[in-house]
Computed example of a mutant assay.
Amino acid sequence: MSDARPSGLAIDLAGRTAVVTGSTQGIGRAIARRLVEAGAAVVVNGRDAAKTDAAARALSEETGRPVRAVAADIGTAEGAEALVAGAGEIDVLVNNAAIFDARPALEIDDDEWRRFFELNVLAATRLTRLVLPGMAARGWGRVLNIASDSAVVIPAEMIHYGMSKTALLAVSRGFAKTAAGTGVTVNAVIAGPTHTEGAERFVYQMVDESLPWDEAQREFMRTARPQSLLGRLIQPEEIANMVAYLASPLASATTGGAVRVDGGYVDAILP
């Protein structure tokens, strides 16, 4: 009798609609592309209509598959509702949109604390609340919240960002309990220091601005993130690969988790 084992594991999201917030650049764009490549009908999102449309066109040209754009400010209730209405029936929601900035703790005022909480936590919470009932009714769905190593190792230079990502871990776990037994999974992805346009700006906030990028990156990892086992910035595509897996039927038994793609940055066995 032959051993009829599959030769490989395929991530197949054909027939599923995926929404990725903050997907005009960086990690969000890489996630959107990877989900398109896995067969999903992807909706990219950003606040600027021209930039969002351009991102959708570029992804469509790169992958040879149609990609839709829905521009909406998800930091507001109206914007979140517009995104959900424009996307239609959502099977995979990736809450990626976020802001970050380096600032001394004693200089962060009340308005800044609120701004970070509202976009980095409340927007994801609101969108999850809007889409989870439909997913549960259909018996399948994926909600993925892009968190950060800063949720576990709070950086002294941006504790407001760390706070928001810690809260996002709690939100993920709580909604996973709400979705228990429905066929819907909810997980957080703990992304480590990643090479994006925003990260380049942040790196130069932390090291000498006159350094060439390669030297600046090495100096940043050596002085600001020395506990990284990878010793380099993570590429957005490496985050996207984990998101695509968690979004797929292959990850049906993974829910309520905080899955790390951090290059070994968090010095713990568990988050």
Rank of each mutant, 00 (worst) to 15 (best):
A136C: 04
A136E: 13
A137V: 09
R138G: 01
R138W: 03
G139R: 01
G139M: 05
G141H: 01
R142L: 05
V143N: 00
V143F: 01
L144S: 01
L144H: 01
A147H: 03
A147T: 14
S148Q: 13
S148T: 11
D149N: 12
S150Y: 03
S150D: 14
A151V: 06
I154Q: 04
I154F: 11
P155M: 08
A156M: 12
E157C: 04
E157L: 13
E157Q: 12
I159D: 03
I159S: 08
I159R: 01
I159E: 06
H160S: 05
H160F: 12
H160L: 07
K165W: 14
A167T: 10
L168Q: 14
L168R: 09
L168V: 03
L169K: 03
L169G: 03
A170L: 09
A170R: 10
S172D: 10
S172T: 10
S172M: 07
S172V: 05
R173V: 13
F175K: 00
A176I: 03
A176N: 02
K177R: 15
A179P: 01
A179M: 08
A179I: 03
A180M: 13
G181S: 07
G183V: 03
G183L: 06
G183C: 08
V184P: 00
V184N: 00
T185F: 01
T185R: 15
V186N: 00
N187K: 09
N187V: 09
A188Y: 14
A188M: 13
A191E: 10
G192S: 04
G192E: 09
P193Y: 05
H195T: 06
T196C: 11
T196R: 04
G198N: 10
G198R: 06
G198C: 09
A199W: 05
A199S: 14
E200P: 00
V203G: 00
V203D: 05
V203P: 01
Y204D: 12
Q205D: 11
Q205Y: 04
M206D: 02
M206I: 15
V207H: 00
D208T: 11
E209Q: 11
S210F: 02
L211R: 08
P212T: 13
P212S: 05
P212L: 15
W213L: 11
D214F: 08
D214W: 05
E215W: 06
E215V: 14
E215G: 02
R218E: 12
E219F: 01
E219K: 09
F220N: 12
T223C: 02
T223M: 04
A224F: 12
A224W: 12
Q227V: 12
S228V: 10
L229Q: 15
L229W: 05
G231F: 11
G231A: 08
R232E: 08
